[in-house]
Amino acid sequence: MKNFIEVTELKKVFGDGEDEVHAFGPATININAGEFVSILGPSGCGKSTLMLMVAGLLDSTSGKVEFENKLVNGPKTDIGIMFQDNTLVPWRTVKGNIELQLELRGLNLKDYQEQINNILKSVNLDDFADRYPNELSGGMQQRAAFCQAMIHDPKIILLDEPLGKLDAMTREKIRADFQKLWMVKKPTVIFVTHSIEEAVQLSNRVILITPRPGKIDREINIDLPYPRDLKIKRSPKFTEYVNSIQEVFHKYGVI
């Protein structure tokens, strides 16, 4: 049986000649529909590059990406994607920026007003709906960008370190909310993160990437029940997963 997403021998080399940078791969990754997969790896190993290629926003040097047997050869539009640098525009308020996603997709803003309020509430930004991005802190901007990426209720979600700039508490809350949302709607998620604990808490499977050029070191299935609340996070099994991943990166000398 074919998988929902198939990444086959995907490789990216930037530049040519002396400027050549082998950024990623070759690597093969298969993802099932509704699966939550985290990508963990040291800085510069090609995680963002991988994500852009999967989204069809960056051409690969070799290899291919397929969604349900269909080759990706241009930008995929049936996704929600959050980039490492936020895509908020300075001339729109937080709410306006969320609406930007809907407007560009030709969706009716009226139908989404309630969703916008709800998602803003879930990231504690409801009081800042009418503020401009430059009036927000870095972490608040990131939360607004998260809402922007998610508002159209995508079935495929690609997130590049979406919670990286958040304080520990807000981060914990958004993780929990996001997990709840995933359990209900079961989108397919590719989640790039630097936090081992976050990857273990959220994912069905964690893919560990080697230092650049990123290849797959190993894939670890996280066999813990959802929702993964505090009790599970304190369980020995959870700690074991975290420790085993730490050991892998320790081996590479990145921690």
Partner: peptide, 23 residues
């Protein structure tokens, strides 16, 4: 990022011009 963002929405060139590129 903004270029990639609007590409991922599938918006037409005209629409992206007026909602993103021009402002």
């Amino acid at each position: 990022e903004l270029t990639l963002f609007y590409q991922s929405t599938g918006a037409s060139r005209l629409k992206t011009f007026f909602t993103i590129r021009l402002p």
